[in-house]
Design a protein around this nucleic acid. Structure first.
Lengths: 243, 243
DNA sequence: AGCCATTTGTTCGTATGTATG
DNA sequence: TCATACATACGAACAAATGGC
């Protein structure tokens, strides 16, 4: 049993009063000096505990106004974007990778806009197929901004998937994702071996480095065997470790 | 122009060195005392800046081992679970609500397990339909644990949707979501006025209070006109406010 | 509108504990 | 073993914002 870490104990004690309803949303809780006296520590320690509750979105603080409990609209959640290779191997299946096509070309209009490229500027397009025990699991369709990532021209992606190459080679500063379901094209239906009426679950991933677009990827998954799950954003609710 | 806040300035300076690639993943960055000397402050201030980078998942710290830059697998993102009424009104449509059924009954096995209920224990089931300008937008199918939320028996949900009633009346401590696409039942196809081959995008939401399950909801959306988007978890990358 | 006490926000310097290479 | 570097905490001081008189 680890010894008690004060700021964490305080944070958890306050958390308990909030989730138990003892301190209802809207209520102003005692000030730092009062809490410091109650818990037998200095203001700085209480402040640190409160700062974590702010980061978790549970309370709001204002000078002079004190610390107020927020109502949890409770709509924020954290998703871990799955990496198909890891998912397949974690499930105990054999991972298979096959590059379908790679070419340098003029990207279509929506992609060009995402990259902020002028017409005629070049980009690299890669399509590939990921398998689990030989069965198609995901089609990856990706554009990479050749201006932002010159090294992409030297890659043929024959054995390394663009996904894995990019995370290693190219740092990015922003990412955005979109989840949706789509009617598959005939090509997708064939590649993924879909049931006649089956749709695809699409994960669209875009990354930027500062303001320059790096890549736009469409990850097509058979909707019958794909899902995305979330977890709570308040990490310390379940894991007190990350302080 | 706000005056410089040291720990924030330091945090951003370090962030810049990381995202620019000057400090590549795997590299051990200078220690707290060195950074404190460089930035002209005390160790505590540097430590606070570094703590935020840890929280953001950009670096890893170990006693004696120092602070190491992490490769961004970059898979964490934040989703805001959409509330159908807000989405519809934000889009400038008229929101319509219709309760379909409400009854107290024995929940099916998967729901019972989620609630941790013994067979025979009662729960309330509600089904309702949300509309945008009269057009069906979402079917909400929900079980509520009557043991954990006794007040649910007094509600008929004729005018207030279970969603909005719950967020007001029942605090929760944990939530989990799952996104997937499904072949609709005939009933759903009719209710949502789906195209003949159209699938539904399902948001499954479960909430708990401590260890007691509160509710399991299935939100069925026409896949043709529904999507979920994410944003970056590193708040200070775009908004320096949340320190 | 303006003053002012209150409360949070930031930083300092110091001290000591703890994991670890 | 032991020096190292992070981790926690203290007490003090001043700055900045702001709600209420």
């Amino acid at each position: 049993m680890p010894i008690m870490i004060k700021h964490r104990a305080i944070r958890d004690a306050l958390l308990g009063r909030i989730v138990s309803g003892e301190w209802a949303p809207g209520r102003v809780i005692p000030g730092e000096v009062d809490l410091a006296r109650e818990f037998g520590c200095t203001r700085a320690t209480v402040a640190r505990a409160l700062r974590e509750l702010v980061a978790a979105g549970l309370v709001e603080r204002r000078r002079r106004g004190g610390t107020r409990v927020l109502g949890r609209s409770g709509r924020d959640a954290v998703v871990t974007i799955p990496i198909v290779r890891e998912e397949i191997e974690a499930a105990g299946h054999a991972y298979g990778y096959e590059r379908l096509t790679v070419r340098e070309a003029d990207p279509p209009e929506p992609i060009r806009q995402a990259f902020g490229l002028r017409p005629g500027a070049a980009a690299v397009h890669v399509a590939c197929l990921h398998r689990a025990d030989g069965r198609p699991a995901q089609v990856e369709d990706r554009w990479i901004n050749a201006a932002a990532v010159p090294a992409v021209r030297t890659q043929d992606f024959r054995t390394v998937s663009p996904n894995e190459w990019l995370v290693r080679a190219v740092p990015y500063t922003r990412a955005r994702h979109e989840f949706r379901a789509e009617r598959p094209t005939d090509r997708l239906r064939g590649l993924l071996d879909l049931a006649p009426d089956e749709w695809v679950f699409v994960v669209e991933r875009r990354t930027w480095r500062e303001d320059a677009g790096i890549t736009v990827a469409h990850l097509y998954n058979p909707a019958d065997r794909f899902r995305i799950t979330t977890r709570d954003p308040v990490a310390f609710g379940v894991d007190p470790g990350a302080g």
